[in-house]
Each structure stands twice: as structure tokens, then as C-alpha cells.
Design a binder for these strands. Structure first.
Length: 511
RNA sequence: GGUCGAUUCGUCUAGCGGUUAGGACACUGCCCUUUCACGGCAGUAACACGGGUUCAAGUCCCGUAUCGAUCACCA
């Protein structure tokens, strides 16, 4: 049987980087096994629905390079798709039918308790020091439901349109075992599971029901999700059993969590803000508040870098290879090698990956970024010049959008000169070198390219009896105002002869 | 608090009874580069603790500690 996995986010906002990793692991496993990856939208909570979130999630997955084989985001030309619809809000009849079936089979029941009544019950139990304040095999007998009310009253309440839910009739004493791919055998006593609401009073299912029904109907073979779902996994096993689908129940793999870079707890938006890094793949503008949250893409991260970084958080192929393309990850992926423990999300290594992938990029891919930023700053910058700048500076940056800032000494003539270099290097020889080189340039009509400039400078200084090594840093100072920077000859080539001469004159006058 | 789970350098991790406990990021130094960066080389740095089992334990077992997840008509 072919492997089928799903990523099932809730459209309550932008996709968190932890969600991206969950999607990534699903994708790697699916591809590795030659199976399919589905995208299902779990929008059963009408209160938390955020417009635009679904489109954001689809775009984010596309950006990182996760391809969806089936489900939301795939174009079915108006048709629901082979197992669609893939939006749970459009599948309510399906869940209602299954919930009703469970009621008819005595595995679930109607309940009419109001929020206040539930509150009161919990408070009462807590006051009595009960082991757990839950709606279960014992407490259900004191509540307003089909187990305590006469059948005729249940019927009339429903007929009258009274708000009601359907709850799972969880057995009092039963061991529920589940063989998790990551964690091995997990055993939970049914007393730890309460009579979970399956169908809410608005007619929509809760996560638990919708999830099991859809995974079954959509032929899901492996459920790969975050560790936060582990405690409810036994409930899901119970549901498969009650629904009569236990023989085709998917295998579970609960992924370790992404933790805060420091301190304790799982990674949150706040940690990202504090640490000055993004937590969402793409920039996100909250439709309600207009608040903009930064994205990895907009911050200059390459998708390959994010993927490479994320893949190695909680998983490792057991080799010493660190750099992986998506295809290499797929080839190396082994679900049995997923860790049990959480991983701290430290951005430093992500930056290192980014630096690596930036260098891999052809100059022609990066040049437009320089051109655009230069244009925005009011400079005429041809694609050719931008490409030259990229080639010169690519190895010095971590993010593509740092190129223009790194190139500031090319675009801007110095307005001040590093005092430390001035006092150490700007001596008589240096001034004389600037003068003779300026003069030589005046009479020079050859090609103004790095190699030629190098020769001209060497010859000129030699004739003047100046040791080049003694004045090179001063020359750099005169041209850029700084003692550090990329190759001088190439820099001069890009700046151009006229500007070089102008800057030499300016330095001679100003320092 | 109940339940479940985790614990190797600061961080990500390799390890699956016998290793000088390996790699990467970060950090430091050296080399290269008449600068800086890149690159190369080197270095600092870890098995949470206590008991067992065993000739032998980072590896197996049991405790303790610490950390985490979860206990809604949210997913």
C-alpha cells in the first residue's frame, strides 16, 4: 500500500516555523516512500478563523519547496478533488453522520449541559479534591445528557432545537496502547481520557472527530505531527476502534518540539521578537490589527537554508554531512531516526546555512537585489554593474539584502575617514602616492580594469620610489574612508576612473 | 496536581556494552590575504545525579533531580 501523509493546519494565522518543520518531515517521508502528501484545512473553529491564513499557508509551503500532491491548494477546476472537499468546514455532513452513527451504536451520546453547568461541575470536583475534574464515566451520571434524561425528553429537547453536543462514551477502565514510530509503545489508561465532545453545538466537529474521520476517508497511512498531540493519541485510537476502522488505522509519529533559544518552554513568537529573528516563513500582516510580522523570506533567508536547518532539528541521518538539498534530504530521510527530545531553536546555525546557500547562488540571481536597492537609493546602476558588485561582495555577506549596504563605499564617496587609519597610515609617502597615482590616471587611456589598474599603480609607485605595501591601506582610506574592505583593484574598477581620481583629490584636500 | 515524555560540549548532534566520546555552529589562536571577509589548520568545551546488572556502562535496569507536553464545545 502506498504511503499517504497529510499536513493539516488550522487557518488561525500564519504558519509557525514549527509547523513548517512538521510539514517538511511529512513531505520528506512521503517522497522517500514514493507516496503522496495531502494538505487539509482544519477550519472547524469558526471563532478563530483568520481570513487569508489558508492562502498564506499554501504560499509558504510553496516557497520552502514542499509540493502538495492532493488537497487544498491543488487546482481541481471547481471539482472537490478525489477525496475532497479538503476544507473541514465543507464536510460537516460527513462528521455528523459518523457522530450520529456512534450515538446509535451506543458509543456516544447527546449532552445538553451549558457552559455554566460544566464550570460548576468542575469547580465542585476540584473543591472535593477529585483526582481530575472531568466529564467521564462517573460524572456523566450527574449531568444533563441522554444517559440521565428520559428518552422522550432527549427527543423533545433535540426536536425543539435546544443546543446540544455529542460526547464520546469513554470506557471507565481500559488500557489503550499505541505503537508510536518515534516513541515506541505508549500506554494510557482510559480513565485519563474524558468524555470528549465530538460534535459541537454549532454542528461542527471537534479536532478529534474530524481528524479521524478525514484521515480514514482520505486513506492516510501515517500521521506525523507535533508532540503536543501525544496525550490525545490514545483517544484517537479509541475513536478508530469505535468507528470500526482500527484495522486500517494509520501509524503515528509524534515529532519533538522546537524549544526557546534560551530558558524553558516551546518556541514562541515572543522569543523570536526578543532574539531578533523571524518565526514565520513569510511576512504576515494581521488582517484585524494591521500589525506586520517579519518573515524568513523577507529577512533574506533562502528557502534551501531554512529547510536544511529545520531538517536537522530533531532528525539526523547519522552521517557527518551537514549540507543537504531537498533531494538529498529525501534520499537520506529515515523516519526511525527522528529524536524524542526537543531541540532549541538557535538562529545562528540558520545564518550559517544561509551564508552557504547565498554563495552557491549565481551572481545573476543576486544582482537584481543590488540593482533595486541602488535604484531606490537614487543611483543609476546597470545590471552589469550590479553583477560586478555581487561577484565582489557575495562572499562577505549572510543575506542577499546586505549586498547594497556592503557596497556603500562603492556608491558613496567617503565623507569621513577612519581616524585610526589616518593617524597610522596617512603619512607623506601616502599623500605622495595619492598624488602620483592621480597624475598617472590623468594621462591613462587604457582599459580601466583590475589587472591594468594593478600594473599602473605598481609602476607608478615604483617610479616614484614608494613601497606599495606601505601605502596600500592609505590608498584604501583615501578611496573608501575605511581601512578594511574587499579587493582594492576590483573596487576601483567598479567605481570607475573618474570617480577614483575625484576621491583621491578629495582625500588629499580633506585629510 | 494527574498522565505521558525527554536528558551527550553554550547550541544542533554522532554514538546503539570495550571509542583518545566524533562532526557542525558559535568562540579563541595561527596560516593565507600587504586590509577585512572567505578559505585552511589548530584549540577551549559534554555523557544531569545516585544506585544496580556486567570482566567492562554514555550505551541495559531502578530511583532522584531538572526540563517539557497535556488535562476546553482550540486545533
Amino acid at each position: 500500500m502506498s504511503v499517504r501523509v497529510r499536513f493539516a493546519p488550522s487557518p488561525t494565522g500564519p504558519l509557525h516555523v514549527g509547523g513548517v518543520r512538521t510539514a517538511l518531515f511529512n513531505y520528506l517521508f512521503a517522497r522517500k516512500m514514493g507516496g503522496q502528501m495531502l494538505l487539509r484545512v482544519e477550519d472547524t473553529d469558526q471563532n478563530r478563523f483568520v481570513p487569508g491564513a489558508e492562502a498564506y499557508i499554501i504560499e509558504a509551503l510553496r516557497w520552502v519547496g514542499i509540493e502538495i500532491d492532493e488537497g487544498a491548494g491543488v487546482d481541481y477546476a471547481g471539482e472537490p478533488g478525489p477525496n475532497g472537499p479538503y476544507r473541514q468546514s465543507e464536510r460537516r455532513e460527513i462528521y455528523q453522520a459518523e457522530a450520529t452513527r456512534l450515538v446509535e451504536e451506543g458509543k456516544a451520546y447527546y449532552a445538553f449541559d451549558t457552559a455554566d453547568e460544566l464550570d460548576a461541575m468542575r469547580q465542585r470536583l476540584e473543591a472535593a479534591n477529585a483526582p481530575a475534574a472531568q466529564y467521564n464515566a462517573i460524572t456523566r451520571l450527574q449531568m444533563k445528557n441522554a444517559l440521565t434524561l428520559p428518552p422522550a425528553e432527549v427527543q423533545s429537547r433535540i426536536a425543539n432545537g435546544e443546543a446540544h453536543v455529542i460526547r464520546l462514551k469513554t470506557p471507565l477502565k481500559e488500557e489503550i496502547r499505541l505503537n508510536d514510530i518515534v516513541r515506541g509503545w505508549v500506554t494510557v489508561h482510559s480513565s485519563a481520557i474524558d468524555d470528549k465532545v465530538l460534535l459541537k453545538s454549532d454542528g461542527l466537529p471537534t479536532y478529534h472527530l474530524a481528524n479521524i474521520v478525514d484521515d480514514h476517508l482520505m486513506g492516510i497511512t501515517h500521521v506525523i505531527r507535533g508532540e503536543e498531540w501525544l496525550p490525545s493519541a490514545p483517544l484517537h485510537v479509541l475513536l478508530y476502534r469505535y468507528l470500526g476502522w482500527e484495522d486500517t488505522m494509520p501509524r503515528f509519529a509524534h515529532l519533538p518540539l522546537l524549544l526557546k533559544p534560551e530558558g524553558s518552554g516551546k518556541l514562541s513568537k515572543r522569543d523570536a521578537d526578543l532574539g531578533g529573528f523571524p518565526i514565520f516563513p513569510l511576512q504576515w500582516t494581521d488582517p484585524a490589527t494591521g500589525v506586520v510580522a517579519r518573515g524568513f523570506r523577507e529577512d533574506g533567508y533562502r528557502p534551501e537554508a531554512l529547510v536544511n536547518f529545520l531538517a536537522l532539528l530533531g532528525w539526523n541521518p547519522g552521517t557527518e554531512q551537514e549540507i543537504f538539498s531537498m533531494d538529498e534530504l529525501i534520499a537520506a530521510f529515515d523516519i526511525d531516526k527522528i529524536h524524542k527530545g526537543g531541540a532549541r531553536f538557535e538562529i545562528e546555525k540558520a545564518k550559517w546555512f544561509n551564508q552557504h546557500y547565498i554563495r552557491q547562488l549565481p551572481d545573476s540571481d543576486l544582482a537584481p537585489v543590488v540593482m533595486q536597492q541602488a535604484t531606490e537609493a537614487g543611483f543609476a546602476c546597470s545590471l552589469e554593474k550590479a553583477t560586478q558588485i555581487t561577484a565582489l561582495l557575495k562572499g562577505r555577506i549572510t543575506f542577499a539584502n546586505e549586498l547594497f549596504a556592503e557596497a556603500r563605499t562603492i556608491f558613496y564617496a567617503p565623507t569621513e575617514y577612519d581616524p585610526a587609519i589616518v593617524s597610522a597610515k596617512w603619512n607623506d609617502d601616502a599623500k605622495r602616492a595619492a598624488t602620483v597615482f592621480g597624475d598617472a590616471l590623468t594621462g591613462y587611456n587604457g582599459l580601466f580594469a583590475a589587472d591594468e589598474i594593478k600594473h599602473l599603480l605598481a609602476d607608478t609607485l615604483q617610479q616614484a620610489g614608494i613601497k606599495q605595501g606601505k601605502v596600500m591601506q592609505a590608498m584604501r582610506l583615501a578611496l573608501t574612508g575605511s581601512g578594511i574592505g574587499p579587493d582594492m583593484m576590483l573596487t576601483m574598477e567598479i567605481i570607475g576612473k573618474d570617480e577614483v581620481m575625484a576621491r583621491l583629490e578629495k582625500a588629499l584636500a580633506d585629510i
